[in-house]
């Protein structure tokens, strides 16, 4: 299998402080990968790097030749203005941006697609409601519907099941399974270890760098998880510059 995402010794962070430190590895095309780690492990930072919002401080991220806009991204706290007067139907419809663009018409076929996506996440009948009237879990379903319409090769979900009830989680996990079956690459940050064991064949255990990466049962051992927690507690305001990529000095 070809690598869809390739991390070449990548360091991502803010104000020179690394949040993801010297990560190397590859995510295969069509993989279903859970990213697990304690708070502050760099999961969201890694995702922001993948979708190109954050430029690496060092190293590079290869995207297997796909356009950055062919990656659908669901951020941890979606920065949505819920008071904006837009209907659920129109909001989800923005997922068709790549085919409709700024001017393209939204015809009958597109209407059917949007209705289908809403039905798939269990939001049939909500078309004309304003987005501000939805509950937290319903908003999450709506965002999944938009991801569905984006029809992207790579789907990046940052803690998609926070504050979501069991039934909604089950529905959305089923949707993720469908994306996997369609051959898309799906990466999700999760805290629910049981869910990871049950539904995600591969796991990356992250604590600023990869603690373990591979088949889920081999990664999620008690020893690995304790190691991840230990590694996350090192943040130093006065840290010196990292020399790991500096060229070796001549003798």
């Amino acid at each position: 299998m070809a690598a869809q995402l390739q991390f070449n010794n990548v360091t991502l962070g803010y104000d020179r402080h690394p949040a993801v430190h010297h990560l190397s590895g590859a995510i295969e095309s069509g993989a279903l990968l859970a990213v697990v780690g304690p708070n502050g492990a760099g999961k969201s930072t890694l995702f922001r790097g993948i979708v190109g919002i954050l430029k690496p401080l060092a190293g590079s991220i290869g995207r297997g030749g796909i356009d950055i806009r062919d990656i659908a991204y669901l951020p941890q706290t979606a920065d949505i203005d819920r008071s904006f007067p837009i209907s659920v139907f129109d909001f989800v419809g923005t997922g068709l941006w790549r085919t409709s663009g700024p001017f393209g018409g939204v015809g009958k076929a597109a209407h059917a697609k949007i209705a289908h996506a809403l039905a798939a996440v269990g939001l049939g009948g909500f078309e004309n409601r304003n987005i501000g009237t939805l509950s937290g879990g319903q908003t999450q379903r709506m965002l999944f519907a938009r991801v569905l319409l984006q029809d992207a090769r790579v789907i990046v979900l940052d803690e998609p099941f926070n504050a979501v009830d069991a039934r909604t989680t089950a529905d959305l996990v089923a949707l993720i399974g469908r994306w996997h079956a369609e051959g898309r690459t799906v990466i999700a940050a999760l805290h629910d270890i049981e869910l990871v064991r049950g539904s995600f064949p591969q796991t990356l255990l992250l604590a600023r760098t990869a603690v373990a990466w591979g088949p889920t049962p081999e990664v999620l051992t008690a020893a690995n998880q304790a190691e991840a927690r230990r590694m996350c507690e090192a943040f130093d305001d006065g840290a010196a510059a990292c020399h790991a990529d500096a060229p070796p000095r001549a003798a």
Binding site: R69, A72, A78, F84, I86, R98
Partner: peptide, 21 residues
Amino acid sequence: AVIYRPLVIECVDPLYLRTVS
């Protein structure tokens, strides 16, 4: 008329617009 669609999305969900356009 020309900027209407991006402007609306930029108001509702600026991060999304950044990832698609």
